[in-house]
Simulated assay, not measured.
Amino acid sequence: MTGPTAPRGRFITLEGGEGAGKSTQIRLLADRLEQAGIAVRTTREPGGAPGSELIRDLIVKGAVDRWTPMTEALLITAARAEHVARLIRPALEQGQWVLCDRFFDSTVAYQGAARGLGMTEMTNLQQLALGNFAPDLTLILDLPVDVGLARAVRREAGRTDGEDRFERMGQDFHSRLRRAYLEIAGQETARCQVIDADRDIGAIHGDIWKSVADRMDVTDGG
């Protein structure tokens, strides 16, 4: 006889424009969940799986006009399909919770709205690639565009990896991006929660933890 199957893990994504602080908040949330006795896997997009990381280098570096919007969307979606197959689904099936820095909402917002391909069209592309696979909870970190870009500039000043292609796409691009994320949140209230990211790190984490604890029925380990 085989032993009992581990319950499926939960899949939580963090979204938002440049400089929203997603990476910091994922680390804090992962630590808090682990204190609560939950096995956690953190990952990112584009990337996450070996093949997806190769595609990441093509997308986030180089000239702003390196790719047409559709080529960009197809590359990102290919990376995502590989990421889900190689890392996310297996981890969830093993009972781990997966925290991901960006997922398909980024394609809908970045390529669909900000790059002009259409939000509906990009949603359809994600469904073609992933079927009905979706996060259990999406936390959208929202802040004014000028604040986020200023943070991104400070962050990039200390980096040497050249991953600043999207940051260089201009104020109008990032304004369209912010509006798109808020539209997604308004349309998918059962899955999405907007978090005010124009505050100190502790306050943002407090709201994120409350949302996760309430929606995922987690007992506080911190």
Rank of each mutant, 00 (worst) to 15 (best):
T2Q: 13
T2S: 14
T5N: 07
A6F: 07
A6T: 15
P7D: 11
R8A: 09
G9F: 07
R10C: 05
R10I: 13
R10N: 00
F11Q: 00
E15R: 01
E15C: 04
E15T: 04
E18M: 03
G19C: 08
A20R: 00
G21N: 03
R27I: 05
R27K: 14
L28V: 06
L29N: 03
D31P: 00
D31M: 07
D31F: 04
Q35R: 15
R41Q: 13
T42H: 06
T43I: 10
T43E: 10
R44W: 13
E45T: 04
G47F: 10
A49I: 06
P50W: 08
P50E: 15
S52V: 09
S52A: 15
E53P: 00
L54H: 10
L54M: 12
R56L: 08
D57N: 13
L58Q: 12
G62M: 12
G62N: 08
A63W: 09
V64D: 13
D65Y: 04
R66P: 01
P69W: 14
P69G: 10
M70S: 09
A73V: 08
L74N: 01
R80S: 04
A91G: 06
G95M: 05
Q96I: 03
W97L: 05
F103Y: 14
F103W: 02
F104P: 00
D105Y: 15
S106W: 04
S106R: 01
V108L: 12
A109C: 12
A109T: 11
G112T: 13
A114K: 01
A114R: 01
G116Q: 13
G116Y: 12
L117A: 02
G118T: 10
M122W: 02
T123A: 13
N124A: 15
N124C: 08
L125H: 01
L128Y: 12
L128S: 09
G131H: 11
G131S: 09
F133N: 05
D136R: 02
T138H: 02
L139C: 03
L141M: 13
D142P: 01
V145F: 08
D146L: 07
L149W: 07
R151D: 09
V153W: 06
R154P: 00
R154L: 14
E156C: 06
A157R: 14
G158P: 01
R159K: 13
G162K: 06
E163D: 14
D164I: 13
D164M: 07
R165S: 11
F166H: 04
M169K: 05
G170D: 15
R178K: 12
Y181S: 03
Y181W: 13
Y181P: 03
E183W: 10
I184F: 09
G186Q: 10
C192M: 07
V194S: 02
V194A: 06
I195Q: 02
D196A: 10
A197R: 01
D200K: 03
D200C: 07
A203G: 15
I204C: 04
G206N: 14
D207N: 11
K210E: 15
K210A: 15
S211G: 04
S211C: 14
D214Y: 06
M216C: 15
V218D: 09
V218K: 07
D220K: 05
G222S: 12
